[in-house]
């Protein structure tokens, strides 16, 4: 049974969003990291790149698989978690503590399309 945190927003493609003012902090869910297995690399965009809701912004890699990451919101990347460059295993250790990117949202109403914890829990069938 994977961990789900109340109060966050969730996407169908297993990203979570924590809203801090106009900035969306984005990571992947505990369910996603468990499905992926040992993560060997987190492919992240550069600061100042534009991301679009529903479009890919990076990828998680394991030894035998790559899984794209999709941005839940649109906007400009204001920070990437550089710690993951050298320690991708942190996502396995705690997927909620180890965010991946922070996005300055251009349209906060996009958050309304995301799921709450209960709906996400239902999606993953737990």
């Amino acid at each position: 049974m994977s961990k789900i945190i109340e109060g966050l927003k969730y996407s169908e493609s297993h990203e979570w969003v924590k809203v801090e003012g106009n900035v969306a902090v984005i990571g992947v869910t505990d369910y996603a990291q468990a499905e992926m297995g040992d993560i060997t690399y987190v492919d992240m965009p550069d600061v100042d790149d534009e991301v679009t809701a529903g479009e890919e912004f990076g990828a998680l890699e394991s030894v035998k698989a790559a899984s794209d990451l999709y941005s839940p919101v649109s906007g400009k990347v204001v920070a990437v978690n550089e710690e993951l460059d050298d320690a991708p295993e942190k996502v396995n250790e705690d997927a909620f503590e180890n965010w991946i990117i922070k996005v300055e949202m251009s349209d906060a109403s996009e958050l309304d399309a995301l799921m709450d914890a209960a709906a996400y829990k239902a999606q993953i069938g737990e």
Binding site: T40, A59, E61, S62, V63, K64, A65, A66
Partner: peptide
Amino acid sequence: LQAREQHIK
């Protein structure tokens, strides 16, 4: 580093 390669990507 096979996740870069054609059979996965």
